[in-house]
Design a protein around this nucleic acid. Structure first.
Lengths: 225, 225
DNA sequence: CCATGTGAACGCTTTCACAGCT
DNA sequence: AGCTGTGAAAGCGTTCACATGG
């Protein structure tokens, strides 16, 4: 009983939302989540229902299932349950930044990782100078140490911020090093072998989506938010 | 006959892909696109079919419909037809960057806008110092000039890169200034009035999607790429 | 023959409406 | 009473298989 992809995507965002506002411990209702996210409350309940179903299938962690109270969901427990159902196995996901130019180095001081389920544990750049000049809470390495470091630390994800011309070549190398997920910030379209996943993050595509949605709105389609 | 959202998203990416490789003028087949993007060729043909349908509905631009040749699609004509169908009205979309910290200033030298249908035409920051120190191909302004500049230039889109704590407040202001689409790079969840669209770009969510997809793969689901 | 183009069947996701729990 | 939880129905997007056109 696998979780449908759109559902997984929503749940993932929901978990992030809950983790961010972790100061709030009072139960949160599906109606309240609707207000925050724009997703209809029944969709949310259905998503969480799918979560229950998948949790029963794997009969482990028997205690963490009671995230629902008479007046809503327990934020912390719900977030945890989502993360587990989406394959988090308790451990935090290890990520590295590849390419420490303007964009890549911006992540060195990015606040968004706190409270998430992922950690930045390394950075790489082919320019040794940059590696030495830049400072971060985690170590930075020259590119030739990629294989060694990624293997040793067991890094699963890479955030790709190299120049477009080097994107494919670098991606190939990352796959060889054992990376299974790439967040691609370059405008290049990557092709990777089966078993590896790419998520493209492109301002241009984001702008395209916006334009498309705005154009559709002028007709009479229901808004997503 | 509106274009379905998933279809629109694929077409938008396809258009970007074609625009990027604009040196290539030979016809491109759906099979070739499959290789490049990972989407099955029938999905692509169907998407383009939807494009035809929507073009017939609006009976304008009668000449630009013949993008298909006996051995594939004409790249340039296809890209143009997609952009038009997705609401591009010929004009290029004007964007501004709001918040010129590490992340925001990275866009000042971002290559991805070339060959796209969007132009960066302004940047804003509340720190006057930054505005004066940074250099770009387009003018940078202190934040208090937002209303004036956005109105005067007719800017429709904003790329939001301010610190999370100021995100909502800044978004409110952008809406007041007439911005209709926001690409939100902050980890904050924004709420905006109807008629305005937000596209969230979050590394954390991207990582979440990757994890979800990788987890599902271990079962027996068909891969997307 | 090649590749496009599209109605029709299929399968998945969302929506609905109501049962169940506290 | 209020909110969660879920089978059943409806709505959509994808897949298939074949008709069509250069």
């Amino acid at each position: 009983m696998a979780i449908p992809k759109p559902t997984a995507e929503r749940l993932s965002q929901l978990a992030r939302l809950l983790e961010q506002r972790s100061t709030r411990t009072a139960p949160i209702s599906s109606a309240e989540i609707e207000q925050l996210t724009g997703w209809p409350s029944h969709t949310i309940r259905k998503d969480i229902s799918a979560l229950n179903a998948s949790q029963e299938a794997r009969a482990d962690t028997p205690a963490e299932q009671d995230f629902s109270t008479p007046s809503g969901y327990d934020p912390a427990k719900l977030a945890l349950a989502i993360r587990k159902a989406l394959g988090f196995s308790g451990e935090r996901g290890k990520c590295c930044i590849v390419g420490l130019g303007r964009l890549g180095s911006a992540f060195l001081e990015y606040a968004g990782f706190q409270g998430s389920s992922f950690d930045l544990v390394a950075g790489f750049d082919s320019n040794v100078n940059r590696v030495e000049i830049l400072k971060a809470d985690f170590p930075l390495y020259p590119a030739f140490k990629m294989k060694d470091v990624i293997g040793r630390l067991g890094i699963a994800y890479a955030i790709l911020c190299v120049p477009p011309a080097k994107a494919q070549e670098t991606a190939d190398r990352l796959v060889e090093c054992g990376i299974v997920g790439i967040v691609n910030f370059t405008p290049a379209i990557l092709s990777v072998p089966h078993g590896t996943e790419v998520e493209n993050v492109s301002v241009i595509d984001a702008l395209g989506s916006l334009t498309a949605r705005l154009a559709v709105k002028k007709s009479a389609t229901r808004s997503e938010k």
